[in-house]
């Protein structure tokens, strides 16, 4: 009796939760639905009835080629990809090596570096942007290079990544394994590259996901570093495009969809790893 009642209550509770979640979920994807239904309409139909599934003038694909050409989509896509990939790889290699050095050697220099890195995490980007432009633009004159942006992306993400690798090496890498390798004649770098680094795979995945997303989507830093049109990343290209064509709603819809598409497609395939990676990164 009691058990049957409890089971029924549980069923009702679950049904209510699924209904609430479904409503919330629809609210969450509503903006995306709006873009998707309007991207296939002509401008007049979007203005007249933005909520209609199909406009009076019917279905159109012409917004896409126009937007692709005018925002120079493939160029900015290439720039974003190049910058994201190299900045992510750089961050992972440098921060994991640094974290390894800090965990295994109780030196004063290591402690100072680690404390500085942790403390720097509270510095807002706004405090550094003016001196960065002044130094790298005015003094060194090396703005407007993709490599400069990669260098800065790495610099800003090193602290957090080192902190995450530090925790992971501390708890997951058994020191006995390294001692055995030392006896076998491995030097420190070989130990790190062949034994420690492979054990860190889950943390590497988490750091790669968080940083790659941040690099891909960042606007403020890239907009300060890359002022030349042919160097634009997708967020800068979107911003500039919106500024020029803001009244041409059909084109804007296509540009916004194009800007979102690469990462959404990637998410469909890597969704499981991304969700797991972020969740794993949260547990400490």
């Amino acid at each position: 009796m009691e058990n049957a009642k409890a089971a029924r209550n549980k069923k009702i509770r679950h049904a209510i939760m699924i209904i609430v979640l479904t409503i919330l979920f629809i609210a969450f994807i509503f903006p995306f639905i709006m873009v998707v239904i309007n991207v296939f309409k002509v401008k007049a139909d979007i203005t007249a009835a933005p909520l209609a599934l199909i406009g009076k003038h019917g279905f159109t694909l012409e917004n896409f080629p126009n937007a692709i050409e005018k925002m120079n989509f493939f160029r900015s896509f290439g720039n974003s990809l190049f910058i994201t990939i190299f900045a992510t790889i750089g961050t992972i290699i440098l921060s994991s090596m640094t974290a390894y050095l800090i965990v295994r050697n109780n030196w004063k220099a290591n402690k100072i570096l680690f404390v500085l890195m942790i403390a720097s995490m509270v510095i807002p980007f706004q405090v550094l942007m003016i001196p960065l432009v002044s130094l790298y633009g005015g003094v060194f004159g090396i703005l407007n290079h993709r490599l400069t942006l990669i260098f800065m992306h790495i610099g800003f993400s090193l602290s957090m990544a080192t902190f995450m690798f530090h925790g992971s090496i501390h708890t997951n890498v058994p020191i006995s394994l390294e001692e055995a390798a030392t006896i076998d004649g491995c030097n420190k770098f070989q130990i790190f590259a062949q034994i420690v680094f492979p054990i860190l795979k889950p943390t590497i995945a988490t750091v790669a996901i968080i940083d790659a997303m941040a690099f891909w989507n960042d606007y403020l830093l890239p907009s300060l570093v890359l002022g030349r049109k042919e160097l634009y990343t997708i967020p800068i290209a979107t911003k500039v495009f919106y500024g020029t064509y803001s009244t041409d709603t059909g084109l804007i819809m296509a540009a916004l969809l194009l800007a979102m598409l690469p990462i959404l497609l990637l998410y469909i395939f890597l969704q499981k790893y991304i969700v797991e990676g972020i969740t794993a990164g949260a547990v400490k």
Partner: peptide
Amino acid sequence: QYLIFAGLTTFIFASVVLVPFVYG
């Protein structure tokens, strides 16, 4: 050892975060 494992990190971190902070 420090230069092998953390040399580049120190250089980049200093040039992007520490020096601009003080310069700011």
